[in-house]
Amino acid sequence: MRMVRFVDAETRAVVQGITGRQGRFHTRLMLEYGTKIVAGVTPGKGGETVEGVPVYDTVAEALDRHQVDASIIFVPAPYAPDAVYEALDAELNPIVVITEGIPLRDEMEMVARAMRRGITIVGPNTPGVIKVGECKLGIMPARVFTRGRVGVISRSGTLTYEIADHISRIGLGESTCVGLGGDPITGLDFIDALRWFEEDPETEAVVLIGEIGGDAEERAADFIAEGGFTKPAVAYIAGRTAKPGKRMGHAGAIIQGSRGTAQSKMEALEAAGVSVAERPSDVARLLKALLG
């Protein structure tokens, strides 16, 4: 069984690709949130500082000077795999890969290497992971989250913010939220995350936010039906109106053959005892009914 590691108030992180536009911007927002960003890495920019954070040429140098646990990567797609391998060599865990557009072949290889070492990769193409009120290792807007009882696992960014906003407003709040990533190959799937939330004492229920393409939601439904996850669960699946063979934005969101339709995912989840919401705002109402 694979061990998954997320983040908390103690997590100290390095930002790889800190001097780019996105890296810089989100370093500031993460620091404002209270995340312990202790160092940044950009090859060739060693010696600079970004938002008061010292920048190094290599991850190894950052490790010589600082205690570091985790990494968040903003490096452009052609160079992102090497950044991931550098973080893996330094045994940073988890490694959050924000980068969009990494080739599938590289994703397969980096995920295989991480699995072999027991290291969690969040993403690629993810908004990241947040333990609400403690640590935000990602690009999600902080204002939609309120510390509370619900865990969120999602394949989509803005839709997560939409649903988290409702969960916050209804008074339940969130414990930890993780974006699996929009690509066909990701380090985590729903099952890995469900196992973690099953053990998390601060999570009383989870929300699964899925979309068309692949069969990760169906496999999660099997896992729940077999008793692998026992807390209340609510799901929302995007893409009922999607046409087979047409890619709906995400590289992962495409219906191929008869597999991966919203219908098949919703049916599988319902059969496993998961409450499936029709509209994004219904998620919070269903949770409220389940948790009281």
């Binding site: 394949r155 960014g157 936010i209 995007a238 999607a242 934005g249 919203a262």
Partner: peptide
């Protein structure tokens, strides 16, 4: 028009739920 693939798909689905028919998917991206 939406921003983000998931939110845009959810928007299409919601339009349809209220009896409308979407003419397209258009994701502005981030």
């Amino acid at each position: 028009i939406g921003n983000g693939a998931g939110l845009t798909m959810a928007t299409l689905d919601t339009v349809q739920l209220y009896g409308g028919r979407p003419a397209n998917f258009l994701d502005l991206g981030g």
